[in-house]
Design a protein around this nucleic acid. Structure first.
Length: 848
RNA sequence: GCGGGCGUGGCGGAAUGGUAGACGCAACGGACUUAAAAUCCGUAGGGCCGCAAGGCUCGUGUGAGUUCAAGUCUCACCGCCCGCACCA
């Protein structure tokens, strides 16, 4: 039987995973995204940390000095909720959770250097974050600006987007309002171009993540231009457009409800104020704004067309125009933009096509329900007529610039990073507000969170705390107040990978240790972080570089994004979710345990409390052991795809663990460890003639080659299949020396995946050392090659036969063999081939 | 709404443009057993022909296209999933 705690202790005693910078081996840094200490680990963690652990153990076996640390992303909203419910300090709840989860992670047998453990809520971590905030401030990368928040008028608190449910506060049920607050921002847009262009260098990131980041940064070239207010040439509305070519198709101008002009108008007219209030009833999230029904309000204001003073366009306030992008105002060309077209149809505005697709008649071309966004020739556009879209863009821009009415501009969708959070359980922003001096950096770092946080009254406890915020101004010494906003938790996770290089450093980041370890060689985590966390970490690393802490700009040289862990869902007759524990299955149907009450089996979905389809890892580890759970996470499903947890699959993995153990236990009489296998002159014997080598030896070396390649590329499901195949080939009839080689190789190959079982097997095979210290096996190329090949022969692309040929057969001999095959002759029916295509070592296709 | 992804047997999946279904799960048949479990051996995409060996044919969400050859490339469509800046 596999004794997991025993081996975990052996690794501990051996200090197997403790690493230092003074090591002759090459460094390799494996990191999985650190967990939020929510209470217990979930299957998503198990998958993430299993994947990372395989990489770490594999690289270690291949001779690298592997850094594999663990920590806790410990600030955040759930601790505040727990504090409110359970009347405890968020810190108490958080540290309790960390203790539980640390034990759970240890039970998985992860090859972690626990000496480097960090928690972002610990003052020893966040004091450095505060110091870096001041670094960013000094570098001019921090500033204050007004921004909208979701405001709960009953609870008197700011709500996170996820706390807004159907436009109402989750706790109070009150209709949420949008409210403006002055808040702290990081100037990430200073790096827009750099963050975008450096994506090209991240060639070991998934293409989809790079594409998502590219679209998120959203570089677009366009024109900023001013529309004059009719009858008032001094006043104008600036719009940004990427389609200046369509200017003659304009039929309205629309401004955001948050536009300064909208604010001015709302002060003058009650109906406009009502409309803007209406717009503000949707949440602040982009999804909420964009999916809301398009609404517009004609302000009565008119602007004149830049190229025709007699042409007046109405000015609308429209709920789909975002203040955060461009100038917060657009001109609408309904014929060539779908959203403008929907708007024009709703408010009965003109739709004039100005770009005519090639081959269409300008007079007869009409836009119906769909806007035309393709290429074509300009029409109905005076001096632009007949031009291509690109020519017309350039010409319009030239004339607008000549008029002094605007200029060409590159715009980014990326907005500056709002880091202020009106919450007590976060890293305090180290600023002090003085009536006389304005905002002044705190000098007494760390700015500690108070030991007491009371959640009884509405609003932020840091604001209502009796003493915490009252301090003297560091500059003038007068009475002043601390900033009560804390940092977005994304700030905490934007530099933790650098802290791991030396978690006890007096500086935020030990630059020597960072130079040795950074960048992270392999970063692994959920696809849900593909944009924000990774982008913020990339930005922060540029800061670390600028302030002299790091020598790199990019934090993660290779990125892997894993899929989610899913499970079937169950619902009772009343349509309520039912947990997997409450049901049993008979003949593929589900019933409430011990009854005939049928339960509906629903689709497989991401494990979540709300759908009650969560399987607790600790119970599975109790029943089957950590190795079984790890094996399940690696088997079958490619790691980047969603995996479905099934009881049958888990039981199957457990049986395989047993089978491997039996295979070793019942191996019978084997030569002593280190004896050369038969057919090999010595151990190893690379490249020597494999004459007489057994099928088992060949299979062993093929498996070593394949698993090595698969693990190197994180194709764990394929590596698992290779291990099954090799295990299936080991039988008692093989020569004892070959069997020893096969068994030892097998154990070494699955050791990164099932480390406890591997140690037990290694010991049973007569080794006194730990498998964790054994080097990775080497495949003998001579044994991986095969001398003969069986390839298919097609006639007109259909498989009609197969031939067995020497691996190095000449093209002519392959052709001859193909033409002699019975099945081929039958289907040729005597016809002469027109062409014979021979793809060496692959296939022959005879075309008749 | 915008952005990204996925779709192959009963199920998870494999397949540098080159024998579709490796490997596993479930299933079925056999061995072992008083019996069951466990274990071991074997079978298996659908249809048709054949006693059999084997052969024919259809088949990777749908429809078109490129190619000697398409699960793989191109276009259009359908379905499902994820992200959207205050969840982490």
């Amino acid at each position: 039987r596999v004794e997991e705690p025993r081996w975990q202790k052996a690794w501990d005693d051996n200090q197997s995973f403790v690493v230092n910078t003074d090591d002759k081996r090459d460094p390799y840094y494996v990191l999985e995204m650190f967990p939020y200490p929510s209470g217990r680990i979930h299957m998503g963690h198990v998958r993430n940390y299993t994947l990372g652990d395989v990489v770490a153990r594999f690289k270690r076996a291949r001779g690298f000095n592997v850094l594999h640390p663990m920590g806790w992303d410990a600030f955040g909203l759930p601790a505040e909720n727990a504090a409110m419910e359970k009347k405890v300090h968020p810190a108490t709840w958080t540290y309790d959770n960390i203790a539980t989860m640390r034990q759970q992670l240890k039970s998985m047998g992860l090859s972690l250097d626990w000496a480097r453990e960090i928690a972002t809520c610990h003052p020893e971590y966040y004091r450095h974050e505060q110091a870096m905030f001041l670094d960013f401030l000094e570098a001019g990368l921090v500033y204050r600006k007004e921004a909208s928040v979701n405001w709960d008028p009953v609870d008197q608190t700011v709500l996170a987007n996820e706390q807004v449910i159907d436009g109402r506060g989750w706790r109070s049920g009150a209709l949420v309002e949008r409210k403006k607050l002055s808040q702290w921002f990081f100037k990430i847009t200073a790096y827009s171009d750099d963050l975008l262009s450096a994506l090209d260098s991240l060639d070991r990131w998934p293409d989809k993540v790079r594409l998502m980041q590219k679209n998120w940064i959203g570089r677009s070239e366009g024109l900023r231009l001013r529309f004059d207010v009719a009858g008032d040439k001094k006043d104008g509305i600036e719009v940004f457009t990427t389609r200046p070519d369509t200017l003659f198709g304009a039929s309205f101008v629309a401004i955001s409800p948050d536009h300064p002009l909208a604010a001015k108008l709302s002060g003058l007219r009650a109906d406009i104020k009502d409309f803007i209030d209406e717009c503000h009833r949707t949440g602040t999230s982009e999804a909420a704004i964009e999916t809301a029904e398009k609404m517009g309000f004609d302000t009565g204001l008119r602007v004149t067309h830049p190229f025709d003073e007699t042409w007046e366009l109405p000015v609308y306030i429209a709920n789909f125009v975002l203040m955060g992008y461009g100038t917060g105002a657009i001109f609408g060309c309904p014929a060539h933009d779908q959203r403008d077209l929907d708007f024009a149809r709703k408010y009965d505005l003109e739709v004039l096509p100005v770009v005519i697709p090639e081959g269409s008649d300008p007079a007869g071309f009409e836009v119906g329900a769909e806007a035309y966004t393709g290429p074509g020739k300009l029409a109905n556009s005076e001096f632009l007529d007949g031009m291509s879209v690109d020519q017309a863009k350039a010409e319009t821009a030239k004339r607008v610039e000549a008029q002094g009415r605007g200029k060409r501009e590159v715009n980014y969708r990326l907005r500056d990073w709002l880091v202020s959070r009106q919450r007590p359980w976060g890293c305090p922003i180290p600023m002090i507000r003085c009536e006389k001096c304005g905002y002044v950096p705190a000098e007494d770092l760390p700015v500690l969170l108070p030991d007491e946080l009371k959640f009884e009254s509405a609003g932020n406890p840091l604001v209502s705390h009796p003493t915490w915020k009252h301090v003297d101004c560091p500059q003038c010494g007068g009475a002043a107040e601390r900033e009560t906003d804390t940092c977005d938790t994304f700030v905490d996770s934007s530099w933790y990978f650098a802290r791991f290089a030396d978690p006890n450093s007096e500086a935020p980041v030990n630059k020597d240790a960072a130079a040795y370890w950074l960048p992270v060689d392999q970063y692994i985590g959920g696809i849900e972080h593909a944009i924000l966390h990774l982008l913020y970490a990339r930005f922060f690393t540029r800061g670390l570089h600028k302030f002299g802490y790091a020598k790199v700009d990019e934090p993660f040289s290779s990125l892997f994004t894993q899929g989610m862990v899913c499970h079937e869902t169950y619902k009772n007759a009343a349509g309520e979710w039912v947990t997997p524990d409450e049901i049993e299955k008979r003949d593929g149907k589900a019933y409430l345990k011990g009854s005939d009450v049928a339960v509906e089996i629903g689709s497989s979905e991401k494990m979540s409390k709300s759908k009650k389809n969560v399987i607790a890892p600790e119970t599975i580890i109790d029943v089957y052991g950590a190795d079984t759970v790890r094996w399940f996470m690696l088997s079958d499903t490619p790691p980047e795809r969603d995996i479905e947890w099934t009881d049958e699959g888990a039981a199957g993995c457990w049986r395989f663990v047993q089978r491997l153990w039996r295979l070793v236990e019942e191996a019978g009489e084997l030569p002593a460890p280190g004896t050369a296998p038969e057919g090999a002159s010595e151990l190893p014997a690379p490249g020597t003639a494999p004459e007489g080598a057994s099928e088992l030896r060949r299979a062993t070396h093929r498996a070593i080659a394949a698993v090595t390649d698969d693990v190197e590329h994180l194709r764990f499901n394929r590596a698992v299949a290779q291990i099954y195949t090799l295990a299936g080939m080991i039988d008692a009839k093989a020569a004892p020396a070959d069997r020893r080689e096969a068994l030892e190789s097998l154990v070494l190959l699955f050791a990164p995946m099932m480390p406890h079982l591997a140690e037990s097997c290694w010991q049973a095979l007569g080794h006194a050392t730990l498998v964790v210290d054994a080097p990775w096996p080497k495949a003998d190329p001579a044994l991986v090659r095969s001398d003969t090949l069986t390839i298919a022969v097609q006639v007109n692309g259909k498989r009609r036969g197969e031939i067995t040929i020497p691996a190095e057969a000449s093209e002519d001999s392959v052709k001859a063999a193909a033409m002699a095959d019975d099945g081929v002759l039958r289907s040729l029916e005597g016809k002469a081939p027109k062409r014979i295509i021979v793809v060496p070592k692959r296939i022959v296709n005879i075309v008749v």
